[in-house]
Design a protein around this nucleic acid. Structure first.
Lengths: 203, 203
DNA sequence: GTCTATAAGCCGATAGAC
DNA sequence: GTCTATCGGCTTATAGAC
C-alpha cells in the first residue's frame, strides 16, 4: 500500500514542466510530448497520471493556485478598504511567486478559451469578492464611481496585467525594486482612482 | 496588368478570417486550413498571398492597426494630461472597433511570444509616448508617483486589460452602456491615480 | 490566381508488454 | 508505474496541373 517515491516525483515534475511550457508557448502551442520530454518522463505518463492534456491543465490550478489561503481569506469579513488592500497584496504576492500561472491566466482570459470554465472554478471567488467590496465601498460612501462593471475591470487590470518583461525593458529605466513599496503604490493608485479620501474617514 | 477583382477579395477575406480565429483560438490553436475554410478559399492561398502563417500575422497588423492615425498623433506635441487623455481615448476606440486585435495583442503579451517583435514594431511608439508623457507630467509637478515603470504598467493595464465577456458576465449587473462616459470615467480614474489635481492647475 | 495531390512530420491517446 | 509501438487524424508547405 505504500507509494513509490517516484510516483509523486514524476507527477510533480510533469506539472512543473507543463506550467512552464503553457506559460511560454500557450496551451495549444505545447504538446504532451514536449511536456514529457521536459519532465524526463515517458510520453504515455500524462495520460496515465492525469487522464489527458486537459485534465492536466486543471491539475495545474489544483496544485499551484493558493486555494487554501483563498478559502481562509473568504471566510473573514472585511471592510472595503482593507479587503481590497488584502486582495491587491495577495494577488501581487502570488504573481511574484507563480508568474507562470499568471501568464497562463492572462492568456486564457484574453482567449476566452474553453479552459476559462476551469479557471473560473478557482479564481471566481476572489473576483466576486473584489466586486462586492467595490459595491459595498460605494454604498458606504467610501468610493465614488459610475459603473461598477467598468471599475471592476479597471481594478482587475491594474492587478493582473503587470508584466516584467524583456519586451518592455527598452522602455524601462533601471530602478531599484522594492516589493512592499510596489504593493503600496499600486494600492494607493487604486484608492485614489476610487476617490477614497483618507482624511474624510481617518483610516 | 489589371488586377483581378477577386485578388483583393480573397486576401481581405483571409485576413478577416485569420483575425477572428487568432482572437478566439490563439495563433498556435488556429490552423491555416481553418483560416482558408472560414474565408472560403483554397488551402494553398495563405502561402501564395502571404508566404506562410507567420507573415500573415504581420499582415494583420499592417491592415487593421491604426498606423496612419498613430503617425499623425505622434507628430503632434502634447501636454501630459491631454496627451494621456488622447491615448486613452484612441486606444479605447480601437478596442471597440477591433476587439479581436486587442485579444490577439493581449495573448501575445501574456505569452511573450516570438510574435511580440512584430507587435513591437507597430505598438511601441504609443507605449513609449505614454511613458514619456508620464515622466514629463511628473517633472512638471502635474503627477506624483514613485516608480515610472510600475506606473506605466498600471496605466497600460487599465487601458488594455478591459474585456466584456461571457465569463465575467455573472459578475456584472445590467448597466446602461455609454462609450463616452466610459472613456471619461477611465481617464478620471487614471488622473486621480496619478495625483493630478484639476484645481491646482485650472485645466 | 486557383486548384489538387502529396510530402513529411507532429498531434493526443491508448493497447498491451514488462 | 513505466515502457514501446501504433492508430487515426491533423499540421504546414509546395510541386505541378489548369
Amino acid at each position: 500500500m505504500h507509494k513509490e517515491p517516484n510516483d509523486q516525483d514524476v507527477k510533480i515534475r510533469l506539472l512543473q514542466a507543463a506550467k512552464r511550457l503553457f506559460a511560454t508557448q500557450g496551451y495549444e502551442g505545447t504538446s504532451v510530448r514536449q511536456i514529457c520530454e521536459a519532465a524526463g518522463a515517458n510520453v504515455a505518463l500524462v495520460s496515465y497520471h492525469f487522464g489527458g492534456k486537459e485534465n492536466m491543465f486543471q491539475a495545474l490550478f489544483e496544485t499551484f493556485f493558493p486555494n487554501q489561503e483563498m478559502e481562509l481569506y473568504l471566510q473573514e469579513d472585511y471592510e472595503p478598504v482593507e479587503g481590497i488592500k488584502l486582495i491587491i497584496r495577495q494577488v501581487t504576492l502570488f504573481r511574484m511567486k507563480e508568474p507562470e500561472m499568471i501568464s497562463v491566466l492572462q492568456q486564457e482570459i484574453a482567449l476566452q478559451s474553453p479552459r476559462m470554465e476551469i479557471i473560473q472554478k478557482f479564481a471566481f471567488p476572489v473576483w466576486a469578492q473584489l466586486r462586492d467590496l467595490l459595491r459595498a465601498g460605494r454604498e458606504q460612501g467610501l468610493f465614488q464611481f459610475r459603473s461598477l462593471n467598468n471599475t471592476f475591470m479597471t481594478v482587475l487590470g491594474v492587478i493582473l496585467f503587470h508584466k516584467q518583461t524583456y519586451y518592455f525593458a527598452p522602455l524601462f529605466d533601471d530602478e531599484p525594486y522594492d516589493l512592499e513599496a510596489f504593493i503600496e503604490e499600486m494600492f494607493e493608485f487604486v484608492m485614489r482612482g476610487l476617490c477614497y479620501d483618507v482624511d474624510k474617514i481617518g483610516h
